[in-house]
């Protein structure tokens, strides 16, 4: 297991107007590891994950303080190319959100946006990405049909393929299975095990069992603060903090 720090937040604060949604969060992500962010609704875990590829920039009246680095470089540097950042730090959302285009065009989209025109290269990347997302066998005969005709689980794997087509280094997943049935969930989880060989994965989940199953590290957020982070096995067997213990054992508040 690599111990290289891929991404690191130091004393990160985030404000929606005057509301401080994140308070001095310091957390690092090691290369090739899966990290789960858990905590009750409104604890800041989604806000935090959206800071990592500056998705929050799109919300007016928000402000970031503190340091966030990717391979040691400041993510919030004014000169940083945000499109390039989002290529390197891909994202998959809670609800599958394929474009109203064909399966092929959904995956090819990011490549085209990044100015790639070589048809053979695009076709190759689409196939590789769909294979990596464990979807190829199910869609290879309907690549040019609408992506909206796929099942929810297939749509979510398509979104993962779309994120992977541009060869990101980090994959952010914001509750990727919350709209899926148990079988589709299991497929995504198996996929996470496969993908961690290539990507650093950060996943927000409401399912403690999912965090326990898929991640190497788990971080528990509560009211905008990072309460505890540890190896998943340790956090789920002997958490150090009482708030963590109360949350994961379902004795909250």
């Amino acid at each position: 297991m690599s111990q290289t720090v891929k991404m690191e937040a130091r004393n990160l604060n985030f404000y929606y107007g005057s509301f401080r949604a994140l308070e001095d969060v310091s957390l690092l992500f090691l290369e090739g590891q899966v990290t789960s962010l858990i905590g009750p609704s409104g604890c800041g875990k989604s806000t935090f994950i959206r800071c990592l590829n500056r998705m929050n920039d799109l919300i007016p009246g928000t402000r970031v303080e503190g340091a966030l680095t990717l391979d040691g470089e400041n993510v919030y540097d004014a000169k940083l190319d945000v499109v390039e950042l989002r290529r390197r730090v891909g994202m998959v959302f809670q609800k599958p959100n394929p474009f109203p285009k064909s399966v092929f065009e959904n995956v090819a989209y990011g490549l085209r946006v990044n100015g790639i025109k070589d048809k053979n290269y695009i076709a190759e990347r689409v196939e590789t990405s769909l294979k990596s997302a464990a979807l190829w066998e199910e869609v290879k005969d309907r690549l040019h049909q609408s992506a909206l005709g796929l099942s929810g689980g297939q749509q979510q794997r398509l979104c993962i393929a779309r994120a992977m087509a541009v060869e990101p280094e980090i994959l952010l997943m914001d509750e990727p299975c919350s709209a899926l049935d148990p079988i589709a969930t299991q497929k995504i989880e198996e996929l996470i095990f496969e993908l961690k060989a290539t990507y650093t994965i950060i996943i927000v989940t409401h399912s403690m069992q999912q965090a326990a199953r898929v991640s190497d590290m788990t971080a528990f957020f509560y009211m905008g603060r990072l309460i505890e982070t540890d190896k998943t096995e340790t956090l789920f067997t002997r958490p150090r903090n009482k708030q963590t213990e109360d949350y994961i054992t379902g004795r909250f508040g």
Partner: peptide, 9 residues
């Protein structure tokens, strides 16, 4: 119940 932490122990 899939217990964790002190419950599991």
């Amino acid at each position: 119940e899939q217990p964790v932490a002190r419950d599991l122990r």
